[in-house]
């Protein structure tokens, strides 16, 4: 109905993902985890996964819109 929900999902995930990725790169926010011998930059990895998922959603929404526009022209 009027709005392809994949656009807001894609933008939201990309935006939050970008914030987490940058935050994970520039801060030592995982020190607590290192104490438990878990060498995982959880902010960086979560951010990257969110960017990939968000981008995937945006591509799906865009191709779907193009397909619909093509059908209308026909």
């Amino acid at each position: 109905m009027g709005l392809d929900i994949r656009y807001p999902i894609g933008f939201l995930f990309s935006l939050i993902g970008l914030m987490l990725t940058i935050f994970g790169l520039v801060t030592d926010s995982n020190a607590e985890l290192y104490h438990r011998s878990l060498d995982i930059n959880v902010n960086l990895w979560t951010g990257l996964v969110m960017i990939i998922f968000g981008g995937f959603m945006l591509i799906l929404a865009y191709t779907s819109a193009k397909k619909k526009a093509g059908k209308k022209e026909e």
């Binding site: 999902i9 878990l38 979560t46």
Partner: peptide
């Protein structure tokens, strides 16, 4: 309904790292 779809993906991405880290630990 649209917000429920958004919330669904957010719940998955919000808890998935917890499960992975805790299981590794």
């Amino acid at each position: 309904i649209y917000n429920e779809v958004l919330q669904f993906f957010l719940i998955v991405i919000g808890f998935l790292p917890l499960v992975i880290i805790a299981l590794i630990h």
